[in-house]
Design a protein around this nucleic acid. Structure first.
Lengths: 222, 222
DNA sequence: GCTCGGACTAAACATTTGTTTAGTCTGTCG
DNA sequence: CGACAGACTAAACAAATGTTTAGTCCGAGC
């Protein structure tokens, strides 16, 4: 194939990573299922046999993508790191922020992994909810976050809301008429609107809440 | 097989709908892909041949599920209805509300359809964003919704946020320790917390917004 | 009674899937 | 040099997939 560019580390800089990157791209683009060994091989410019030669099996390749992506999010490129330093402040959720800043293909893959329920991704989700809940609770104490009746549920919902545009990016791009929601400054515009909603809320008064409580009470004793 | 129970309407109450319902369940549970003709046939208690006899092909069956679900959401069971009557008030988004009240398998299927990008679902998503944006704009005028810098983006984000718990229901159920987020009164608790967030916001002051604007400005002229 | 049509099945079919096999090429180490 | 190891490919393989084929069963209509 193409001549090896420099081969400083003869192990890690060649076809193996090309295959993994191709897999990452395709998994992220088309979903963790629906991607074939042959498609990955073609994308990487190798034979189907080579991908299993390097990774053992398709499932193992997916697991390796999982691990790679998780390590990227946890602490750039280095496994065996989980926590991040400080609670900087809003806009940063110590892990979620890292996730949102990581390269686009990685982000795409992550969203797919969360949706398709790979086990590694599940663990990561739990972790992110954990630190996000703690972060918001800190914020409550420090005065920049609202109090809540259910911290854990709020943390989980907050995370799912940050993930939502990733999961529905196709639809949002179509509706908002942007090419790539996560590459242009459409990101900036989009995030700004979301932040407005997080800061000022969507509803201006307690009517919605009151309506809901009424409905909920009715449902409990009909 | 099992003896036909009563056969009032010999046409519509038999195996054909049983197949469609089985498909709906499996599609919703395992994702629109990843479901086989044989699995559907087994679930419905018929032979694989019969499902294509009735529906022509697997793809046609999926399209029929799409159409069925969409009609359920648009105006219960009846196609050729799109708009709903009035802007009742918060907690109801004229279509989104209908969607969230429809039977669980249908809801599950819908979430999957949005994620897997079936064309019918895309159209429905656009519709829902449309009426939701209009509804929130009305709310602005009527004083119960906050103003926004970008109504369309807010509508789209709002919809994606309401959809998020559906998309990530597996993770939320695990994190919150509930069996089925959309069948027990876990729904009530969950919706209540989300409504709090929609009403009071998550952040208590403008710091996050300010931080973001600073970052955004930096990115524009680095 | 007999045919006709549609629900329905069992088995075969072609294609696509992940994986294996056998082998080639290339650089390295003795 | 000569053997060895590993990257790599082409071809074959077995399993699973959607679909087709041939045929059975059964009720309705002449």
């Amino acid at each position: 194939m193409a001549a090896p560019p420099d081969d400083s580390t003869p192990n890690d800089s060649t076809a193996r990573t090309r295959i993994r990157d191709a897999a990452l791209n395709l998994f992220g683009r088309d979903g963790v299922n629906r991607v074939t060994v042959r498609a990955i091989a073609a994308e990487a410019g190798v034979s189907p046999g080579l991908v299993v030669h390097h990774f053992g099996s398709m499932a193992a390749l997916r697991r390796e993508c999982d691990a790679y992506v998780v390590s990227m999010v946890r602490g750039t490129d280095d496994p065996d790191r989980a926590e991040a330093p400080d609670g900087v402040m809003a806009g940063d959720a110590t892990g979620l922020a890292a996730m949102l800043e990581v390269a686009t293909p990685v982000r795409r893959y992550l969203a797919r992994a969360f949706l398709d329920g790979t086990p590694e991704a599940a663990k990561l989700f739990d972790e992110i909810v954990e630190v996000t809940t703690a972060w918001l609770t800190d914020g409550e104490r420090e005065g920049w976050a609202r109090p809540t009746s259910n911290p854990r549920a709020r943390g989980a919902i907050y995370v799912s809301w940050l993930l939502a545009p990733l999961a529905f990016s196709d639809h949002l791009e179509r509706v908002l008429g942007v090419e790539d929601l996560y590459e242009t400054d459409a990101t900036i515009e989009h995030a700004r609107v979301a932040l407005e909603m997080f800061t000022h809320g969507v509803f201006a008064d307690e009517r919605a809440l009151g309506t809901w409580d009424t409905v909920a009470k009715e449902r409990k004793n009909p």
